[in-house]
Design a protein around this nucleic acid. Structure first.
Lengths: 133, 133
DNA sequence: ATGCTTTAAGACTATTTTAGTCTTAAAAAG
DNA sequence: CTTTTTAAGACTAAAATAGTCTTAAAGCAT
């Protein structure tokens, strides 16, 4: 029932970038790695995922690096988690309908599905802006 | 961001027992294993945990087995998850305060802590009774 | 008492996921 | 065309999850 460390790192690094966003500066992975104390190569994969999901812009070559693709208020906690570890599930059943097959089982699922929807809408409420403002 | 399979099993087996609760019957592990299609030894550990946390009563020896220790409406989804996998955490930081150390970091934590509290209170809303009624 | 049946506890193993590294390629700038 | 940067994905290490097995202990029946 936990987010992965990669998600934690993602939030940390995004908050850092967002906090300097006014200058529209572009940050190199290596630089972010040191500033945020995140292993360099691992951070590479995280930044790639964030870029693929249109949270960051990445630019290669000299003068390359990463910057936000959206305003901090348009990047929610949910967006970050989803980008890094895929959509939120509460249990396996929600994904694999064959995992359980009893009639009560489905009622367990429908409750866990409600819990999941609430969790998602809760995570959508908070954005990077809430952290840096 | 998922509950473990052991939790899924726990909900399944508890719902089964609760659904027959009126008869105050006592179920053997072996019996439950077959009825709920859960590996026998693994189910043993799950039932033990539920008994330790006062959700089930266990009795040894001939005529022994497991039954509910409380009314189905007094066993919430949260109780079950907590019994099986310990208290809910959203990320490591909530447990290990040294994991992050930036000033913004703490603000990330305080938001994740809110999300966590909401999740817990949501899981407390639903009980076994909601499934079997 | 002494078997027989049941759970308790915990060591052990296997599998899967998470965390992290490394290597090669591709793009951009000078 | 060389340097600097990210992209992609294979690879490895470590940790958590899932599950088994063995030995003990408790309760019932004869």
């Amino acid at each position: 029932m936990k987010i992965t460390r990669a998600c934690d790192y993602a939030l940390k690094v995004l908050v850092y970038i967002a906090s300097e966003n006014n200058k529209n500066k572009i940050f190199m992975r290596n630089e972010l790695s040191k500033l945020c104390d995140i292993p360099d190569s691992f951070l590479g994969k995280i930044l790639q995922a964030l870029a693929r999901e249109n949270i960051l812009v990445s630019e290669r070559g000299k003068k390359g690096g990463f910057k936000l693709q959206k305003k901090p208020e348009d990047i929610s906690f949910y967006d970050v988690i989803k980008a890094v570890e895929g959509d939120i599930t509460i249990n396996d059943c929600l994904v694999d309908k064959n995992f359980c097959n009893s009639s009560y089982g489905c009622r367990i699922q429908s409750i866990l599905e409600k819990v999941r929807q609430n969790l998602i809408s809760d995570l959508k409420k908070y954005s990077l802006e809430d952290i840096i403002s």
